[in-house]
């Protein structure tokens, strides 16, 4: 069954959707969208370093994403405006990554594959990494779920309940780095943030509890992956962007429906 590239691609897309759903919900609740972008953009630097030092792309992107996410977390509340800081870091990481890749004269790499993903070339090994990473993220967030929610409501409320919000922030940071590393092959660095935010945002109007929103986001993400791949096959369009397009259309539909019902 896994011999068929379309089936491997679909499974990869669903794996990323599952990891992105609970994490993406927190990204939306905590207004970390730009934070996700910065981490994802830094991953291209990770690709360059992995190729230069001949290590696995997964390990390289994860390491650089983690360093980036930790740097941003550390600089938070040190007197810079957050959006300025993230804008500087996200785009300079991307630029440095692109420049670094150009220095790799010995290797021929398809930059487009990392910027926009190359889901159709997912191998069995990639699939194992994607599902392993996704499972790790789901377990991590599931394990800390209540504490993460409390810390999302308010740092002080978390402290009063004996929870250290800084530790919970670290769990999210780590999950983000893992998700970026597994999603780079599927949607590419430029569209990872879309997979985090769009399904969660589309799930919001249909949800009455945080758990329901995370589950609905997973369903929407999986539907977008399946439908987007199918559309890419039929219309001969790029696969990763097609998946994001379908997710965006679901978001549009969900917002319009909830708007008409008068539910916010």
């Amino acid at each position: 069954m896994l011999d068929d590239f379309m089936i491997r691609a679909t499974l990869a897309g669903i794996g990323v959707a599952f990891a992105a759903a609970p994490l993406g919900s927190f990204v939306v609740w905590r207004r970390m969208a730009y934070f996700g972008d910065a981490t994802a953009h830094a991953a291209i630097l990770g690709v360059a370093l992995s190729l230069a030092f001949q290590m696995s792309i997964f390990a390289g992107t994860m390491a650089v994403s983690l360093v980036m996410a930790l740097t941003v977390t550390m600089l938070t509340g040190r007197g810079y405006a957050m959006d300025t800081l993230l804008g500087v870091l996200a785009h300079s990481a991307l630029a440095f990554g692109l420049v670094a890749v150009s220095f790799l004269s010995g290797v021929r790499i398809d930059l487009m594959a990392y910027l926009f993903g190359d889901i159709l070339s997912v191998s069995r090994g990639d699939l194992a990494v994607i599902w392993g990473g996704a499972a790790l993220v789901v377990v991590l967030i599931g394990w800390r779920w209540s504490s993460l929610l409390t810390a999302t409501l308010s740092d002080d409320l978390a402290y009063a309940s004996g929870i250290n919000p800084k530790r919970e922030q670290l769990i999210l940071t780590l999950s983000l780095a893992i998700t970026v590393a597994v999603a780079i092959k599927v949607v590419g660095v430029l569209l990872i943030a879309a997979m985090l935010i769009i399904p969660a945002a589309a799930a919001r109007p249909m949800s009455r509890s945080p758990e329901m929103m995370a589950v609905m986001a997973a369903v929407i993400g999986a539907v977008a992956a399946i439908t987007g791949l199918r559309a890419a096959y039929v219309f001969d369009t790029p696969a990763g962007p097609s998946i994001v397009c379908v997710a965006a259309l679901i978001f549009l539909g969900s917002s319009l429906l909830s708007g008409r019902r008068g539910v916010s």
């Binding site: 929610l149 409501l153 919001r204 945080p210």
Partner: peptide, 14 residues
Amino acid sequence: TLPMTVERFLRLPG
């Protein structure tokens, strides 16, 4: 963007 009933809020985190 965070959907949460009063009951769910009260029961956090314990």
